[in-house]
Computed example of a mutant assay.
Amino acid sequence: MQLVVGRIGRAHGIKGEVTVEVRTDEPELRLGPGAVLLTDPAARGPLTVESGRVHSGRLLLRFTGVADRNAAEALRNTVLIADVDPDETPEDPEEFYDHQLVDLDVVTLDGTPVGRITEIAHLPSQDLFIVERPDGGEVMIPFVEEIVTEIDLDEQRAVVDPPPGLLDAERAEVAGTRDDEGGK
């Protein structure tokens, strides 16, 4: 399986280093010296990481065979892709790779089916499950501990405890209106 792990930015200095926009939670594993990365566009790779360092909060990498600024600048905007064994799991048992979560069935605490995870959206503040409902609709569920109470890879399911309105905003809105009227 292939994972996007970074994107090459501009050249840094005159000796072939490039800045890298990191797109992995494990840069030391995926972008460390000796890592062989596929590229998009494919004509530029594969690239082997020769060395890396952090400078002013940015990851700088040097690739084997990229010896000067011109060669480094030619790599700008290249996407870096790592081949990952599909059976590989993160070290922390509370962390998951996207490929482990996609296609999981989503159910509520009482077992009511919600749908199937089709995608994981990585936002700055949190990750979201994009869940396709049985009726073909879609719902976004924040991947936070308070809502996603269990990930069971053996059973291929994610258990959620959604706050009111998350799964059915229209019904929650109508119910909220009735509650307001009853209190008057």
Rank of each mutant, 00 (worst) to 15 (best):
42 A>V: 12
43 A>S: 06
180 D>T: 07
60 L>H: 12
20 V>K: 01
84 V>D: 12
6 G>S: 02
177 T>Q: 11
57 G>V: 00
128 L>R: 04
35 A>T: 09
11 A>L: 05
135 D>L: 08
19 T>N: 03
19 T>P: 02
31 L>N: 04
87 D>Q: 14
62 R>G: 08
90 P>S: 10
101 L>P: 01
71 A>H: 00
176 G>M: 06
128 L>M: 10
10 R>Q: 08
156 Q>M: 15
183 G>W: 13
125 S>K: 11
104 L>M: 15
123 L>M: 10
179 D>T: 13
50 E>W: 03
79 V>H: 01
115 G>T: 08
119 E>R: 15
175 A>M: 14
124 P>F: 01
57 G>F: 00
144 V>W: 04
140 M>C: 04
29 L>Q: 12
174 V>T: 11
35 A>N: 09
45 G>M: 03
52 G>S: 14
128 L>E: 05
64 T>Y: 01
67 A>C: 03
18 V>R: 00
93 P>C: 08
181 E>F: 11
61 L>S: 07
10 R>N: 06
7 R>A: 06
43 A>E: 15
108 T>F: 09
121 A>V: 08
133 R>W: 09
151 I>F: 08
105 D>T: 14
7 R>K: 06
76 R>Y: 05
183 G>F: 09
110 D>N: 05
153 L>Q: 12
44 R>V: 03
71 A>F: 00
55 H>W: 09
86 P>N: 14
46 P>T: 11
121 A>T: 04
125 S>R: 07
172 A>I: 05
83 D>M: 05
3 L>Q: 11
84 V>Q: 13
151 I>M: 10
113 P>Q: 12
125 S>W: 06
81 I>H: 04
117 I>D: 02
81 I>D: 02
54 V>D: 06
95 E>S: 15
148 V>A: 15
70 N>A: 13
79 V>S: 06
139 V>S: 11
130 I>L: 09
54 V>G: 05
87 D>Y: 06
123 L>W: 07
97 Y>N: 04
79 V>Q: 04
184 K>I: 12
114 V>H: 10
181 E>M: 10
82 A>V: 03
161 D>W: 07
143 F>C: 06
64 T>W: 00
93 P>E: 15
157 R>W: 13
15 K>I: 01
120 I>W: 01
132 E>P: 01
94 E>H: 15
47 L>P: 08
68 D>T: 00
143 F>R: 04
17 E>K: 05
31 L>I: 03
40 D>E: 15
43 A>D: 10
183 G>Y: 08
25 D>G: 09
28 E>I: 03
23 R>I: 01
92 D>M: 05
10 R>V: 06
67 A>P: 00
13 G>N: 01
57 G>K: 00
125 S>V: 02
178 R>M: 13
166 L>D: 03
64 T>F: 00
94 E>Q: 10
124 P>Q: 01
134 P>C: 05
91 E>D: 14
115 G>Y: 02
166 L>W: 05
173 E>Q: 14
5 V>H: 07
14 I>A: 04
121 A>C: 01
14 I>R: 00
135 D>Y: 07
158 A>S: 15
184 K>Q: 04
117 I>F: 02
179 D>I: 05
116 R>E: 14
33 P>Y: 05
163 P>E: 10
44 R>L: 14
24 T>R: 01
160 V>Q: 03
148 V>W: 04
33 P>W: 08
91 E>F: 12
26 E>G: 00
9 G>T: 03
75 L>A: 10
76 R>H: 12
79 V>C: 05
143 F>A: 15
36 V>N: 11
